[in-house]
Design a protein around this nucleic acid. Structure first.
Lengths: 221, 221
DNA sequence: GTCTATATGACGATAGAC
DNA sequence: GTCTATCGTCATATAGAC
């Protein structure tokens, strides 16, 4: 954003600190490392296709080809195509919730807010394919799966609401809190739609940009 | 957002003026009014299903049922399911481009910026179903259709880029301009994902909220 | 312009051999 | 645990009567 050359500039320093803290939160291992190798290959192939074509346009033949198996072999590892989606969605939502929880634990409140915005946006850029499935294939989940995932979504929103309220210095029910909360969640989520490695941004760049813009949202001009 | 009781408060006044100007831009007629009645019924039914289930999960039987026709009758009015999507997507994109163009013509630059943010966000709330198809079924378009629509998307982004540059007082190539441009477009687009009539916002409320938050983004703290 | 009936193919999921 | 072969279903799209 605005170029700042001054050493120790407070605003840039804030973003730097949030970026450092956020990067540490994102350093966790692979989401699928505990799956058996074949199940993992299936999940990875499924994510690629879900993110690219969407759940409904993805066929078992796509997933089978991507994981080097026959369609019949998929059923040894998952009960159905829906169950593969659920596995991806559940873990992805849990990861997003974990991120915002970890960020919320970073005091002081304004630092927690910046770290949350940085980490949440950057994750949606870095893990763009998983994030796309998480955010845009939610409606494709079956009713009972959707309900489980809804719990994780609500928990995420509650955490963000609390962090924004503390950063603003208001209550979680204020319109101002709700407004900023809606905006920062929306900005982060939508990164999964528009971000691509061919674009002008790095994941870190997206995180820093939104960290700075979100901070500006906190205070009326 | 922040409650302001002062009469003639400049920031609230700015939002009010943008809301009035934006509301006027949105007052145009139905997007499909020039279609023959049957084609129109098909398009409306298709939009509902595309927005609800997505293009790939929508079958011709859904569209047929929604428009009170048999699947065979659909082919009298459209060559294929893809062509229905293209008609919706093309007109929706053209409408969004028209909106931002009209907003850009409102001087002075900061008023144009506020009006653009207001109108763009509010349209995505008010016309949520069309906007969902426009924004989230882009990838479902065939290659040649996608290319035509890409032109409209690029034109929209160019207009927004120019308005943001003028409001910031920088060039269209500045990182600051690009950053704010990305954010306001993203916020507006994502409204189509999360907005619902059951939620806490009205379309006007979304427009006003984002109008104010976007204005705060313009100036470093 | 709309209908019923149908062609053609791909889908998710299963059977049974190895 | 993986394969080939296939089942039953439903998709898009067409044919031909009215």
């Amino acid at each position: 954003m605005t170029v700042r050359t001054t050493e120790g500039d407070p605003a840039t320093g804030n973003v730097d600190r949030a970026a450092a803290a956020g990067a540490a939160l994102l350093a966790g291992g692979d989401l699928w490392s505990d799956l058996p190798p074949t199940a993992r290959a299936i999940v990875v192939a499924a994510i690629d296709s879900f993110a690219d074509r969407g759940f409904h346009a993805t066929t078992l033949r796509h997933i089978a080809a991507g994981s080097g198996l026959s369609t019949a072999a998929l059923y040894v590892h998952f009960r159905s195509k829906d169950e593969v989606l659920f596995e991806v969605s559940r873990r992805g939502h849990a990861r997003a919730l974990g991120l915002v929880r970890d960020a919320a634990a970073q005091g002081p409140p304004e630092h927690a807010f910046r770290t949350l915005v940085y980490a949440f946006s950057r994750w949606h850029a870095e893990q763009r394919t998983v994030a796309r499935v998480v955010q845009y294939e939610f409606a494709a989940l079956g009713p009972e799966h959707r309900e489980q995932v809804t719990g994780l979504r609500r928990a995420t929103e509650r955490v963000v609401r609390g962090v924004v309220a503390e950063a603003i210095g208001g209550s979680a029910e204020d319109a101002a809190t709700r407004g900023v909360c809606t905006a920062v969640l929306s900005l982060g989520v939508d990164v999964a739609r528009w971000f691509g490695p061919a674009g002008p941004y790095t994941p870190d760049g997206v995180g820093r940009l939104y960290c700075e813009l979100a901070e500006r949202m906190l205070v009326p001009r």
